[in-house]
Design a protein around this nucleic acid. Structure first.
Length: 541
RNA sequence: GCGUGCGUAGCUCAGUUGGAUAGAGCGUCUGCCUCCGGAGCAGAAGGUCGUGGGUUCGAGUCCCGCCGCGCGCACCA
C-alpha cells in the first residue's frame, strides 16, 4: 500500500469511530509549506459541523487514536485552525521510487474513465489555407488532452471536421479561378472575402482541368489544401482517427433530417423569409437563423447535425477544442441539440476554448508568412524551432490566457528554454546509466536499500515523483495540460538540483544502487510526462 | 451597449477545483566557484492577488458591482 493510502485508511477508520456521517471523504494533500510535513488533512475541520465540536479538539482526538507505526508515520501535529500534519519516516518516502520502476511506462496511468468512449475534436480548419498558429495551439491542446484521457482510462477517438461546404469554400474556388484567369493574362481581382495568399497561385498553377469548370476547380483546390494540411499535421505528429467531411452531412441528408426534426419540435418559426430557431429558450441572447432567405443553411445547422452523429456514434462524451473567437457557437450548437429533445445532456459537447497566439522574434511581433499572406503558419514554426518546442510552448499556458510564442526562446539551447530544461533533466538521468555502463557498472536496480536516500534533495524529488499520478489525473479531469507542464518543470528543477548536489556513480555500492533507483524513477516520470504531452524525451542532447 | 475571457513580484507566468505565512523562472542585489568566456552554486530584497462589497471557521480561487484589456456580437465559419 502506498504511504498516502495507508494514512487515508487510518483516518477513515477513526472518522467512523468518532461518528462521522457516511460519505465523508478524507482528503490528503501536500501542505503548501514543506515545513508543515509530508501530508496534511483538513478532515477535522470538515467534521466540526456534523460532530458539533471544535476542529482542534477533533484533530487532537484523531492524533491520539492514530496508529502511526503501521502507516509509516513518524510524527503528527495539530496546527492552525485544525490541520493534521503528518511526517513520514524517510525510508517510507524512499520506498516509492521502487514502485515507480516497477510500473515503468505505465506509472501514472489510471482507469477512472472505465473505457468509456470520448470524442475529442480539434483543429477542424476550413480547407481554405495552410494551418496557422492558432490551429497549432489547438493541435497541441487537443492531442495532449486526448492522450491525458487515454492515460486515465478513456477510449479516445481523435476527430477532425473538415468544413468543406459553404460560403468559405465558394470564396476559395473564386479565388483560385481569379488566379487562373490572371495566369492567362486577364485582369481578375480576388473577390471580396477571397484568399490572397501565395498558395492560391500554387493551387492555380497545379490545376490541369477545364478552366471554366467551377466544380472541378473547387474539387482540386479542396484536395490540394487537405493534402497540405495533412502535411502540416504530420509535421506536428498528430494523427486523427476520423476525418469527418461537412459535405457528407449534406450528401447523407443529415442536414435536412436535422432541420426537419427541429421543425417538428416546434422550436422554429418563419420570419422575413428565413427559418429561425428559438435559441433564446436555451440561453442565447437572440434567436438564430437556420435557413437563410436564399434557401441555404447557416453554418450552425450542419454543426448540430454533426454533433447528432457523434451522439449516435456512441460518444456519450464529446470535447471540442476551438479558438475563443468562436465561443458564440457554443450556445447555438447546444441549443440545437437540446431542441431536438433526444436526451443529449445540456453540457454536450464540452468545449475547451483557447485565446489568441502571437509570435515574437527579437522582441517584435511576427505577423506574416510569405505563403499564407496574412498569418504565420504552423509549418513555419515547426521548421524553425522543432516539433517538441512548438508543442510545449502551446501547452505551457492555460487556454484561457493569450499566448506569446517567443521564437528566440523556443530555439534556445539553454536552460532558460523550458522544454530544453525538462528534456535535459531526462537526458542527465540517462547519462548516469550510459556512463555507468561504460564503466562496467551494473545499473540494474535490484536489491537496493532505498532507506539510504535520506538527503533533503532526494526526499523532495521522490515526493514530487510520487505526485505524478495525481497530476495526470487532475490535468486530465480539468482538461488542462498546462498543469502537467508546470509539474514537469518543477520536477525537472528538483532533478537538476539533486544531480548537481549528489553524485551517483562513484559512491559506495549500496548508496550508488539506491541512487540509481532514484535516477531511473526520475527518468521514467519525466519521460512519461513528456509523452503524455506529445513531446519526446531524448536520451542525450 | 450585450455576451465571453483575462487582470497575481520590475518582466513572463504557476497557484492541485475554498485551506495554514500567496510561489517559480528571468531580472536586481550580496557572497562563493570558474585560467578566460558561457555558465553554475548559496542567500536576500521585491505583493493591498485591478478595485469595492458579499458568502463562511477560512477567498487569489465562489457570487455581485465598478475599472482596464482581448475576443465575439452576420441571413460568414
Amino acid at each position: 500500500m502506498k504511504p498516502a493510502d495507508a494514512i487515508r485508511a487510518e483516518l477513515g477508520r477513526i472518522a467512523r469511530d468518532l461518528g462521522a456521517p457516511d460519505g465523508t471523504d478524507v482528503i490528503l494533500e501536500r501542505p503548501r509549506d514543506r515545513a508543515h510535513g509530508d501530508w496534511a488533512t483538513n478532515v477535522a475541520m470538515i467534521l466540526a459541523r456534523p460532530l458539533k465540536q471544535k476542529p482542534r479538539d477533533i484533530a487532537e482526538k484523531i492524533r491520539e487514536q492514530f496508529r502511526a507505526e503501521g502507516a509509516g508515520v513518524a510524527s503528527i501535529d495539530v496546527a492552525g485552525p485544525g490541520f493534521l500534519n503528518f511526517r513520514l519516516r524517510p525510508e517510507v518516502i524512499a520506498s516509492v521510487a521502487g514502485d515507480i520502476i516497477e510500473a515503468g511506462e505505465r506509472y501514472g496511468r489510471s482507469d477512472s474513465g472505465n473505457g468509456a468512449k470520448v470524442n475529442v475534436e480539434f483543429v477542424s480548419a476550413n480547407p481554405t489555407g495552410p494551418l496557422h498558429v492558432g490551429h497549432g495551439r489547438q493541435a497541441a491542446l487537443g492531442d495532449a488532452i486526448a492522450t491525458l484521457l487515454e492515460h486515465t482510462g478513456w477510449d479516445v477517438s481523435r476527430e477532425y471536421y473538415y468544413n468543406d461546404a459553404g460560403a468559405q469554400i465558394w470564396n476559395l474556388m473564386e479565388s483560385v479561378e481569379a488566379r487562373l484567369k490572371e495566369a492567362k493574362g486577364e485582369t481578375a481581382p480576388i473577390p471580396e472575402g477571397g484568399y490572397h495568399g501565395e498558395y492560391i497561385r500554387e493551387i492555380a498553377a497545379s490545376y490541369v482541368g477545364e478552366i471554366d469548370s467551377l466544380p472541378a476547380i473547387q474539387a482540386h483546390a479542396v484536395s490540394e489544401l487537405r493534402r497540405e494540411q495533412d502535411l502540416d499535421l504530420a509535421a506536428f505528429g498528430v494523427k486523427f482517427d476520423t476525418y469527418f467531411l461537412e459535405s457528407s452531412l449534406y450528401d447523407d441528408l443529415k442536414v435536412d433530417m436535422t432541420v426537419e426534426a427541429l421543425t417538428q419540435s416546434g422550436k422554429t418559426y418563419e420570419h422575413e423569409g428565413a427559418l429561425w430557431l428559438r435559441t433564446t429558450d436555451y440561453g442565447d441572447d437572440k434567436d438564430r437563423v437556420m435557413r437563410k432567405n436564399d434557401g441555404t443553411f447557416t453554418y450552425f445547422v450542419p454543426d448540430v447535425a454533426y454533433h447528432v452523429t457523434k451522439w449516435h456514434r456512441g460518444f456519450k462524451r464529446a470535447i471540442n477544442v476551438q479558438g475563443a473567437d468562436h465561443h458564440s457557437t457554443v450556445t447555438r450548437v447546444r441549443a440545437g441539440l437540446q431542441a431536438l429533445d433526444i436526451d443529449i445532456p445540456e453540457g454536450y459537447p464540452e468545449y475547451v476554448l483557447h485565446q489568441m497566439v502571437t509570435v515574437t522574434r527579437g522582441g517584435e511581433e511576427v505577423k506574416i508568412s510569405k505563403r499564407a499572406g496574412s498569418y504565420v503558419t504552423v509549418r513555419d514554426l515547426i521548421d524553425e524551432v522543432g516539433r517538441d518546442a512548438v508543442r510545449f510552448f502551446f501547452l505551457m499556458r492555460k487556454g484561457d490566457s493569450p499566448l506569446i510564442f517567443d521564437v528566440d526562446l523556443a530555439r534556445s539551447q539553454s536552460e532558460e528554454n523550458p522544454v530544453y530544461y525538462i528534456q535535459m533533466a531526462h537526458a542527465r538521468m540517462c547519462g548516469i546509466f550510459r556512463v555507468g555502463a561504460e564503466q562496467g557498472i551494473v545499473t540494474g536496480t535490484a536489491h537496493a536499500d532505498l532507506s539510504l536516500l535520506t538527503e533533503p534533495e532526494e526526499q523532495q524529488l521522490i515526493k514530487a515523483l510520487e505526485d505524478y499520478p495525481a497530476e495526470v489525473a487532475g490535468s486530465a479531469a480539468a482538461l488542462e495540460p498546462q498543469r502537467l507542464a508546470s509539474y514537469l518543470l518543477e520536477t525537472a528543477r528538483l532533478a537538476h538540483l539533486w544531480y548537481h548536489k549528489h553524485h551517483v556513480l562513484g559512491q559506495e555500492p549500496p548508496l550508488m544502487r539506491a541512487r540509481l533507483v532514484l535516477a531511473r524513477a526520475a527518468q521514467i516520470v519525466i519521460a512519461n510526462g513528456l509523452s503524455a504531452l506529445g513531446i519526446t524525451a531524448p536520451e542525450r542532447m
